[in-house]
């Protein structure tokens, strides 16, 4: 590694073993870009560097991770449980998912408090259904993590005018935990991002570095964590009444085939019929695509909502 360094905050790089950086997030957030920048910088200083990633399968919105290992000698391409020196999480739940990989003694967790509820978190599509998303708070995580950097990177990036540079904000925080010159980070980032966004990305890097500096100076700047609530805040509707007019229905089968919950069928008279009212989510697709206007979806407020 290079000898001349600018002030290092919370350095946890050990010369006798590889340094492990695990970058995790949701597909489309820029996980691979972060790990490529990390790997490129490491390449300039270390004899051996290995990066391995899983992406593609995750598509947009799926879980994406990338292992970056660098040092004098690196054998395995992936990081073992409990051996990541830094985990950079671009999303809150992904950070929680990969926590077992963090070194429990000296590891740093850099996490965006941004939450992206995965498709499987919304598998119950009825109105008013709760989301399957962890309700773990920052304080609970802080109790188990040696160095926690929880920040609203997305919010900071939005303040810069482009929420997509949130990953560069996190890179800024990451750059303060490793012993590489700041100038090098700037140069490599400028090399990796599209030409039109270079200045925004460099600003984002600076924002991240400034935020980390404030943390190292002991300021309590932990971001507020907005955990997801059950979806309907204002209009609480949970029961659906499907009003099917058999006199108008001509049995064209469109509603039956289009229903995402498969809860409609044609009865013996070739008229549409609801098979299981509990499955219906009130998505309106049958109503919209009925050419005979035979279906009307009525969303009924719950008893509590009627009281309020």
């Amino acid at each position: 590694m290079s000898a001349t360094l600018e002030p290092v905050f919370g350095a946890n790089v050990d010369a006798t073993r590889p340094t492990n950086v695990l970058v995790v997030g949701v597909g489309g957030q820029g996980v691979i870009m972060v790990s490529k920048v990390m790997a490129r910088i490491a390449q300039l200083h270390c004899r051996e560097i290995k990066q391995s990633e899983v992406h593609g399968m995750a598509k947009r919105g799926g879980s994406v991770f990338s292992h970056v290992r660098f040092g004098a000698e690196v054998w395995a391409p992936t990081i073992a449980l409990g051996e990541a020196d830094v985990v950079v999480a671009l999303e809150w739940a992904e950070g929680l998912r990969w926590l077992p990989y963090l070194n429990p003694v000296s590891g740093s967790l850099i996490v965006d408090t941004k939450r992206i509820v995965p498709p499987f978190g919304c598998i119950d599509r009825r109105r008013g259904a709760t989301l399957a998303y962890p309700d773990t708070r920052i304080a609970e995580v802080a109790a188990h993590v040696p160095n926690l950097y929880a920040l609203d990177a997305e919010g900071m990036a939005e303040a810069l005018g482009n929420p997509r540079v949130a990953n560069t904000v996190l890179l800024g925080v990451l750059s303060t935990t490793l012993d590489f010159p700041a100038e090098e980070w700037r140069r490599v980032i400028a090399e990796f991002v599209p030409a039109a966004t270079v200045s925004t990305n460099l600003e984002a890097l600076e924002v991240g570095r400034k935020w980390a500096r404030r943390v190292h100076e002991g300021e309590a700047v932990t971001a507020p964590l907005n955990l997801p609530q059950a979806r309907p805040a204002a209009a609480v509707v949970d029961s659906v009444a499907l009003d099917i007019n058999p006199a108008w229905c001509k049995g064209c089968d469109i509603c039956v085939k289009m229903c995402p919950e498969l809860c409609l069928r044609l009865n013996e008279n070739q008229k549409a019929e609801l098979t299981d009212a509990a499955l219906c989510t009130g998505c309106h697709i049958c109503e919209w695509l009925c050419p005979d206007f035979a279906i009307k979806v009525n969303l009924l407020p719950t008893a509590e909502a009627q009281h309020a």
Binding site: K250, C252, D253, I254, W288, L289, C290, P291, D292, F293
Partner: peptide, 8 residues
Amino acid sequence: CPGCGHGI
């Protein structure tokens, strides 16, 4: 007719 798009 049944399934005619004109209704939609």
